[in-house]
């Protein structure tokens, strides 16, 4: 039973990842499609950050929000991503003490 769950999950996760590798080899995209695809990373980051960040501590959304804002400030002053991550963790840690 578990084996089939794992196998099925693997297939439905692989296909959406793999199919685009074949698609882009076959097709040339128009300019606007390329512009769209180049904007996807920024859109994806936006969609992954919010509103998900509010659920870090599920019953206290403001903690995730503050942790996120701390990360924005640290990143804005030019710190390395690793330090931004550590700073975010520290902020949430102290807020939940």
């Amino acid at each position: 039973m578990i084996f089939w769950i794992i196998a099925g999950m693997a297939v439905v996760t692989m296909l959406p990842r793999l199919i685009p590798a074949f698609i882009v080899d076959k097709l040339q995209f128009r300019d606007w499609v390329n512009r769209w695809l180049n904007a996807i990373p920024y859109a994806a980051l936006g969609a992954l950050i919010f509103p998900g960040v509010l659920t870090v501590i599920p019953d206290r959304p403001h903690i995730g929000l503050i942790g996120g804002l701390v990360a924005v400030v640290l990143a804005a002053i030019g710190l390395n991503v690793i330090l931004v991550v550590v700073g975010g963790i520290a902020a949430v840690f102290f807020l939940t003490l």
Partner: peptide, 24 residues
């Protein structure tokens, strides 16, 4: 538990750390 729940922000902070310089 205290630390692991704080680490729940790690990936969000990473996304923010990646996005912010591009926005600047």
């Amino acid at each position: 538990e205290q630390l692991s729940q704080s680490m729940g922000i790690a990936l969000y902070a990473m996304f923010i750390g990646l996005l912010t310089p591009s926005v600047k």
